[in-house]
C-alpha cells in the first residue's frame, strides 16, 4: 500500500526515474535506498524527501504555520489512521468532518501532501461507507471528492462515487 502511494506521488511530482523501495518489518515500513548515504525509512520521511527532490516545496506548506499543520496531518495519517479500529474510525471521520467544515484543503489555501496522504489513507474507509454515512460526513466527502479529482493525485486508487445532492435531508421527513 505505502509503496504504491509513493509511486503515485512520484508520478504526480513528475519525477523521471522511479525509485526502488524495500520494506522493513511486519508493518512493511517503506525504505528508500539512496545511492549516496544512509537509507531513508518511513512513509512521511520519504514523501517529504521526494517533494524536495522535485523542488515542489509549496507542497509541504507555504509558511511555518502551514508546514506545521502539514506535518501534523501526515503524522495523524501514520499514527492514528493506519491500523485504526472500527470505533476509532468513526471518531477520526467525525473529527475530520468538523475540521473541514470551513476548509477546502487540510493546510492553508492550496493542495499539500497532507491532502494527498490523508486521501490515500482514508480511501478504504470511504469505499466502505454507506450513502447515509457519507452524508453524515459531508465535509469529508466534499474534500475527498475534490482531492480525487485533483489532476494527477488518484493514480492507483479507483474513484469513489460521491453524491453531490443530498437524498436524506435530515431526521424530519
Amino acid at each position: 500500500m505505502a509503496l504504491r502511494e509513493l509511486s503515485s506521488l512520484e508520478k504526480f511530482l513528475g519525477l523521471k526515474k522511479p525509485n526502488k523501495y524495500s520494506t522493513q518489518g511486519d508493518k512493511k515500513v517503506p525504505v528508500l535506498q539512496s545511492n549516496n548515504g544512509a537509507p531513508l525509512v518511513g512513509l512521511v520521511t520519504i514523501a517529504c524527501h521526494l517533494v524536495k527532490e522535485a523542488k515542489r516545496l509549496e507542497l509541504l506548506g507555504d509558511s511555518a504555520e502551514s508546514r506545521a499543520v502539514v506535518q501534523q496531518w501526515l503524522e495523524h495519517r501514520v499514527t492514528k489512521l493506519d491500523g485504526c479500529t472500527k470505533e476509532e474510525m468513526k471518531t477520526i471521520l467525525k473529527d475530520l468532518n468538523l475540521y473541514l467544515q470551513d476548509k477546502v484543503y487540510l493546510a492553508g489555501n492550496q493542495l499539500t501532501i497532507a491532502d494527498t496522504f490523508m486521501y490515500y489513507g482514508i480511501h478504504p474507509l470511504i469505499v466502505d461507507l454507506a450513502i447515509q454515512e457519507k452524508e453524515q460526513y459531508v465535509n469529508v466527502t466534499r474534500w475527498f471528492d475534490h482531492i480525487q479529482h485533483y489532476p494527477g493525485i488518484r493514480h492507483h486508487l479507483p474513484p469513489v462515487a460521491v453524491l453531490r445532492n443530498r437524498i436524506y435531508t435530515g431526521r424530519h421527513h
Partner: peptide, 8 residues
C-alpha cells in the same frame, strides 16, 4: 531529513 526520520 534525518530529523524527520527520527520524529516519524
Amino acid at each position: 531529513e534525518l530529523c524527520n526520520q527520527w520524529l516519524e
